[in-house]
Amino acid sequence: MQITIVSGKGGTGKTSLAVSLAMTLENVQLLDADVDEPNCSLFLDLDTKLVAEAKIPIPEINYDLCTLCGTCSSNCEYNALMKVPDQILVFEKMCHGCGLCSKICPENAITEVPRTIGYLYEGENKEFLFNYGALIVGEELSTPVISQLKQLISKDKPIIVIDSPPGSSCPMVETVIDSDYVILVSEPTPFGLSDMKMVVKTLRILEKKFGVVINKDGVGNEELELYCQKENIPVLLKIPFDREIAKNYSEGIPFLNVLPDMDSKLKHMIVDIREALQ
């Protein structure tokens, strides 16, 4: 079972929940797919090592064959190629690695060469397997790093917990696309609700089963819960707005270890999710 934790707004508690949830489970794999800023490892007491590089293919022009016809540059969806009088310029960071140029070049003058844009790491502690991806600083494309990170999903683990990037754009879609269930963490503020609505819309288009965890319960207003009622979205769990949680968070201790009843609440949540999936 693959469960992904998403949010609309950043800073609502995806990582806190992902780490706490994974820690309550046995024989689990935790994946930190927030590759722009992976931080699950701050809460985990294990060593990680580099296991792979995330790469995308980019075009290389063979000028023995290139006739400067411009077919490649005029068809590049991402404006990564540009024709000037005596060469084809390749803007590496604009390239999404789609490979179209190499396929449509009438002279077969384009080959694809790999370019490293991120790194994939792994750590293990007994039955707890942890992987994360890290986009290289200055790079822009997190989606390919996420898809390559997902190739490290273990077939031997009965349950996989994935920490998604915030928002509702391509990186989040790539993270949830093959998940069985999605947990949407939100905070009960107008900002949290507004961003959450966009994620709900996205998840419905993707036909994903999902439920909501309300974090920082007690701040803001009732609007979030009323919205969930109206939209028939199950509220799986509420995590209180609590100074002790914040204090421990700042020291790398997840809320699981702060609130004594959280272990059983999280286990119950998994039971509820299993039921929802049947």
Partner: peptide, 11 residues
Amino acid sequence: ARGGAGPRAVE
């Protein structure tokens, strides 16, 4: 352009 407006304009 979604991105790369500068190079596209130069082209």
